[in-house]
Design a protein around this nucleic acid. Structure first.
Lengths: 204, 204
DNA sequence: CTTTTGATGAACCAAAAAGTTCACCTTTGT
DNA sequence: ACAAAGGTGAACTTTTTGGTTCATCAAAAG
């Protein structure tokens, strides 16, 4: 089994040192980089890093921007967030930025280990107590059947002219619909809308 | 540690027997009820049951209605679904009905054990996505880091000019890359590629 | 040392998509 | 009946994207 390279981003030195000890005692894990802020995290980045264990309450940022930037340059890296937030909207945002593991700071190390293993394998870890359904429910914009059809047809590679013809609407209306979809999903481009819809399971 | 009472709902008898063996060998788990269909599952229900291991492709229903009805009478019961679906829509529906664990039928028992422990504690277990398997399959298209970055940036709503600038490549090369991605994924448009990549977990 | 191959970037043109405005219609409320 | 509001379709323009070709450069092959 390959050793999982881990980066610790945590501003509490003692806590970070303790974490490092615990992780290095694991057979398949090793801390290969450390940082005490978002800024130093970008500097200390190493190609050996597979999973970033990320404290959310950092002095120079909430860690989400860090996450976003790291994902752009190192797409394979997974993130586990150490957080006290139960905030559903926060977790939603974080997941959209690539965080797949959430562990409360007061959790046992066991949970952190599980979370690291899970996200490393490509899975998702939500700590017990967090009601996962809440992530799916809150006021998620609902698309009409026609809007869904539009996205599905476009996702199948048809151009707008074909889509309009199949749905018996004019190109003008189709374009109005697309604008409406983007507004509902809070995005700027059709491509972004497709990605957002796919994430939320609105298209197949 | 309390023993977790488990109910198996699975119509393949051999598979169910094998599962029972594996589970009963665990220190903290025991199979306390079995069923080979949704109907018998309701009949064989036992108060000792903590977690229901539920096959999705049952002869008399998809298991989701079963899940819903059991939850009504036994709210504390948790569900782990054995499924082949990677369908986002399906998982979404299932989670809303109370399923907190998803394990592919071809997974190792290790994953099932992890899933049971997780949901029993109140957590959520989503099996590692198709990403890992796709990498193992011979003819599965694998995108390079740069190609992945391109899709991610476009999925964030940036236009091609911005993407090219951020990745320090010319518009010409970017367009070549996009054509390459479409070829790899066997699709005709960038929109279709985004949808395909999203389905396979290649972008997030 | 040549040749070839592959990758890149630029240029040009065609097609598609997006932004904008306008006219027409129905529905709604006054 | 009238005006206002909302939805639809058409026309026009600008921007973006896609298709193609060409020149350059570097690495690999002869």
């Amino acid at each position: 089994m390959k050793t999982i390279g881990i980066m610790l981003v945590e501003d509490h030195n003692v806590f970070r040192e303790g974490l490092k000890k615990l992780i290095d005692m694991e057979e398949n894990m090793q801390v290969v980089a450390e940082a005490d802020s978002c800024t130093t995290a970008l500097q200390n980045m190493s190609p050996e890093v597979d999973v970033v264990l990320l404290d959310i309450g950092l002095p120079d940022g909430d860690g989400l921007d860090l996450c976003k930037r790291m994902t752009q340059t190192h797409p394979h890296i997974k993130f586990v967030a150490l957080t006290t937030y139960d905030d559903v909207t926060f977790i939603r945002k974080a997941m959209e930025k690539g965080v797949h593991g959430f562990v409360p700071k007061y959790a046992f190390f066991d949970e952190i280990r599980s979370a690291i293993n899970m996200v490393y394998k490509g899975g998702t870890y939500l700590y017990p107590g967090l009601q996962a359904e809440l992530l799916l429910k809150p006021d998620s914009p609902v698309l009409t059947d026609q809007e869904t059809s539009i996205l599905q047809l476009i996702a199948r590679g048809e151009d707008q002219k074909e889509v309009a013809a199949k749905l018996y609407i004019s190109l003008s209306t189709l374009r109005r619909r697309i604008r409406g979809i983007c507004t509902k999903l809070g995005v700027r481009t059709l491509e972004e809308a497709l990605a957002a819809a796919a994430r939320r399971g609105l298209v197949r």
